[in-house]
């Protein structure tokens, strides 16, 4: 009779990090579906290609680092990074754009920091920002909503054999930014006047909201980050919009445009790079939301999820030190690092 001796507890949930990550991937499917409906097959191609690049990069670097490839690939974290970056890229992206972004995200932003759990920044957003700064034109060519190219056209775009100009159009955020302050011009752009917010993008964002709510219901994420994120974005937007509705977009437009919902439920919630305590997460997400509104309203870029998330990733450890919960038996929570 050989008995296992181990330290308590002797039972644990039949769960693992891989299952956790797979849930995140499932939750992106509604968003992916709507993106494909609105903008064609480009995003699906992006996502699939990104997954291939991510797995290959991850495997190569795990081998180089002398880690077990099978064990670490099974945690699906590379796939999640690839899916999120694939979703964020424009559907017109040629193959090399994805290759550069995803491989940089996996190799530099994740593996070089020590792999899963050790990266201070959201890898997908690092890859996205690299591309946005290096290839600003390619990164801002979105297709006009409802004007989806055929599968063949998407494949040609992916191969880089079809000029994008004929298909691309400005996004609602871009349009608003260009014509902000000009009431007549704003009224004349149908893209700004969908059922709820910007055309096409309202559905994309609602789909991601749906996926996000699924994650909360499965306890994969808590409500703190999405709620803080959206509140941080909506609150200043509401105030500004009430003051000057011509110059500033309304809160609903902000929440249902660009990467808002993807960011709120899938990007900012990356637990590795986010703040970790409940209060910390609220503060962290709130600041991301505010920063997005500030950059969207006053900055040089039409959207700002990636920049805001990265900036707050940088602040997360600090936020954590000052948002510790009150431990049982203590009158007040600890602050700072204690040293």
């Amino acid at each position: 009779m050989s008995l296992i001796t181990s330290s308590s507890p002797h039972a644990s949930v039949k769960n693992n990090t891989g299952a956790f990550m797979r849930q995140v991937i499932y939750a992106t499917l509604p968003g992916l579906a709507v993106l494909t409906w609105q903008f064609g097959w480009g995003t699906v191609i992006n996502v699939l290609w990104a997954v291939v690049v991510a797995l290959v990069s991850e495997a190569l670097f795990l081998k180089a680092r002398g880690r077990s490839i099978g064990f670490y690939l099974k945690d699906y974290s590379a796939v999640v990074t690839a899916v999120l970056l694939g979703l964020a890229l424009p559907p017109t992206a040629p193959w090399w754009l994805t290759l550069v972004g995803v491989s940089f995200a996996i190799i530099v932003a994740k593996q070089l920091y020590g792999g899963l759990g050790m990266n201070p920044f959201n890898p997908a957003m690092v890859g996205y920002v690299l591309l946005l700064i290096s290839f600003p034109v390619a990164m801002t060519q979105w297709i006009s909503p409802g004007d989806a190219p055929s599968l063949q056209q998407s494949l040609q775009l992916f191969a880089g054999q079809l000029p994008v100009d004929g298909l691309s159009g400005a996004t609602p955020l871009d349009t608003f930014r260009t014509w902000a302050g000009d009431e007549a011009a704003l009224a004349s752009h149908p893209i700004l006047h969908g059922e709820l917010a910007g055309q096409g993008w309202e559905w994309v964002n609602l789909a991601f909201l749906l996926g996000g709510l699924y994650l909360i219901s499965r306890k994969i994420i808590t409500w703190h980050i999405p709620a803080g994120f959206l509140a941080g974005l909506a609150a200043p937007a509401l105030v500004a919009w009430l003051i000057d509705p011509v110059r500033f977009a309304d809160p609903l437009f902000h929440m249902l445009s660009g990467g808002a919902m993807l960011g709120a439920f899938f990007i900012a919630t990356d637990p590795v790079s986010a703040a970790t305590s409940r209060n910390g997460r609220l503060v962290y997400a709130l600041l991301i939301g505010v920063l997005i509104w500030v950059i969207r309203s006053f900055g040089g870029y039409p959207d700002a999820v990636a920049f805001s998330v990265l900036l707050l990733n940088l602040s997360a450890p600090f936020i954590d030190y000052y948002t510790q919960p009150r431990t049982y038996g203590h009158n007040k929570p600890n602050r700072g690092t204690g040293s």
Binding site: A11, F20, L116, G117, P271, T276, S277, P325, T327, Y328
Partner: peptide, 29 residues
């Protein structure tokens, strides 16, 4: 019934532990 625990994976700071801690600690930290 009580299988040997699976291999330890990296902590992703998901915070599940903090959600269940009866002492309201931050086990991940």
């Amino acid at each position: 019934e009580l299988p040997e625990p699976p291999e330890e994976q990296p902590c992703i700071r998901c915070g599940s532990c903090a959600e269940v801690c009866p002492a309201n600690l931050l086990p991940q930290q």
